[in-house]
Structures are given as structure tokens and as C-alpha cells.
Design a protein around this nucleic acid. Structure first.
Length: 273
DNA sequence: CTGTTCTCCTGTGGGC
DNA sequence: TGCCCACAGGAGAACA
């Protein structure tokens, strides 16, 4: 399940494998991603060179001259850079191949097809999928003050606010759980009942946990580029995520499980208030 | 605006 | 061993 650190790791891996190369062919085996891949998708990519690969939220933006390929990995999507001369047999869910003139083929696999791919021209901010996004967590744009300001009229659980992409991007279920634990904030607390000081702690814990995950993900970067298949993401040692019923790493009390918007929330009743 | 629920999809794992 | 089914989960869409 790619969260922001995984998407960033993918971005770095693909960048070193593809920058400067030109798209020579595109094969789409299944157009049914979250939104159907457009009919002119293949033609719009062929002949363009990859100038850079950027990331916004969990979207990858491949810059190809005037055009941008906007891709989301959804829940189960993966991009792998493979040698075109020695391409592995097509497996189930290998939906898209992007063949580059450098001898590399980018292969997109996505069993659940929650991912997406679009090609667009022009300003990013004209894109409906991008224009409502909140600040990037690993930039100066995310501050405790920002979190405080945008939650003044929100009575929903602070955890739900954190996972709202208009508040801040890139904080999925795992990192919402982890950052709230690290900040000592109860996930069910109303977003507008968290103090500025505590939002400042929360903002710095979000940055810390995401940075640590990227540092850990970076260790698998070489495997990814060599790409005989499995990305093999590093699993961080979580404080709470997936540990309900187990002992809190700080106070030993058993961790509790609850739900917010259908998503599992794990927290410590004594460490989080 | 805010909040809530629905939806997409398939692999996995628990229960029997 | 095999079958059934809940569950996982990002995030847009639709609706109250």
C-alpha cells in the first residue's frame, strides 16, 4: 500500500532509471483503472522525453515537454523499471508498459486497479485532481499554525482531519495513527479542540515519521531500480499501527482499537489525550 | 462549508 | 482441504 514515503521512493528510483529517455512505444493491456485510460494515452506519450519526475501528494508527475503524465498508484499499484531486451513474461495485472529508447521499459502493475493515469498539458493547478490539495508535509508549508487554522470549524475527529487531503496531503492511515501517538493526541479528539501548541508538536511528528520512512524506503531503492520484480518495502517498527491489543511501547498498557470512517485506528488510552 | 456514506477492486486470512 | 466472507484501504463522488 503505497503511502507518501513509498511514492517518493518510487519517484527517486524511476528518476535515476529514466531521466532523459524518450518514449518509443506504449502498450496498454487493460484500460480499466480507477478512471479508464484515455484512448489517446499511447499517442500522447510517444516521442516525448522524460525531463523530470515530480511528486505532489501521492501523485507522480512525469514531465514530458509540454505534457505531464499524472499517475497514482492507488492501493496496489507499482512501477518497475525493466530491461527491454530481457523483459519478463507479462504477469497478471501488468496493465501498462512504457517503452523508452534507453533500453528501459516501465511496467505498471495494479491488482486492484485503484490507481490512475492521465496525460494533460498546461498548468497543474487547472487539474481537478491537484488543485484542492493541501500543503506537502515535508515542506515549510506544513506548520502547526496551518493545521490549527484550517480546523477551526471542524468538529470531526482530528485523525479524520489529518487524512483529509485539503488539510495536508500524504498522511494516510498508517502515518495518521503513528503521528498522533507520537504527539500524544487522542485520535478521536475533535479537530477544533486541539491546541495550537499540540498542532505544532503534531506537525513536527508528521514530518519526522514520514522522513524516517523515506530514509528506510531509500534503502530498497537499488533493489527497485534493478527491478527484477519485488520492491520489498521496508517495514518501519510502528508504535501503534497494526498493534491493537499489544503493549504500548511507552507505558505497556494494551493498545486500543477503534474506527474512524471505517479505517482502523489504534491508540494508547493513557499516552494519548 | 461540513460531514457521512458509497464506491471502485482483488488478495489474504480466519472460521468452520 | 476447500468454501465463504469480512477485511484492507486512497480518495473522489454523491448526497444530506
Amino acid at each position: 500500500m503505497p503511502e507518501l514515503p513509498e511514492v517518493e521512493t518510487v519517484r527517486r528510483g524511476l528518476s535515476s532509471a529514466t531521466l532523459g529517455a524518450t518514449v518509443s512505444a506504449v502498450t496498454v493491456r487493460d484500460r480499466r483503472l480507477r478512471w479508464a485510460i484515455a484512448r489517446d494515452f499511447e499517442a500522447s506519450l510517444i516521442g516525448n522525453s522524460i525531463n523530470s519526475i515530480e511528486r505532489r501528494s501521492k501523485y507522480l508527475l512525469f514531465r514530458l515537454g509540454e505534457k505531464t503524465l499524472l499517475a497514482h498508484l492507488g492501493m496496489t499499484g507499482s512501477f518497475v523499471a525493466l530491461p527491454t531486451q530481457n523483459l519478463p513474461a507479462v504477469k497478471a495485472h501488468d496493465h501498462v508498459d512504457i517503452v523508452l529508447d534507453s533500453g528501459i521499459t516501465l511496467r505498471y502493475n495494479d491488482p486492484r486497479r485503484f490507481g490512475s493515469m492521465h496525460v494533460f498539458s498546461g498548468d497543474d493547478m487547472a487539474q481537478p485532481l491537484l488543485k484542492h490539495l493541501g500543503p506537502e508535509p515535508l515542506t515549510a508549508a506544513l506548520t502547526g499554525e496551518h493545521l490549527f487554522e484550517v480546523t477551526r470549524r471542524r468538529s470531526c475527529a482530528v485523525k479524520l482531519a489529518l487524512m483529509d487531503n485539503s488539510v495536508v496531503v500524504g498522511v494516510g492511515n498508517i502515518y495518521a495513527n503513528e503521528s498522533l501517538f507520537r504527539a500524544g493526541i487522542h485520535p478521536s479528539r475533535a479537530a477544533n479542540r486541539v491546541s495550537l501548541a499540540r498542532y505544532e508538536t503534531l506537525a513536527s511528528e508528521i514530518k519526522a515519521v514520514l522522513s524516517e520512512a523515506i530514509a528506510a524506503g531509500g534503502s530498497t531503492l537499488r533493489d527497485f531500480v534493478n527491478a527484477s520484480g519485488e520492491p520489498g518495502y521496508f517495514q518501519l517498527d510502528y508504535f501503534v499501527y497494526g498493534r491493537d491489543g499489544e503493549a504500548c511501547r511507552r507505558c505497556e498498557a494494551p493498545l486500543k482499537l477503534t474506527r474512524h470512517g471505517g479505517r482502523a485506528t489504534v491508540y494508547c488510552r493513557s499516552c494519548q489525550r
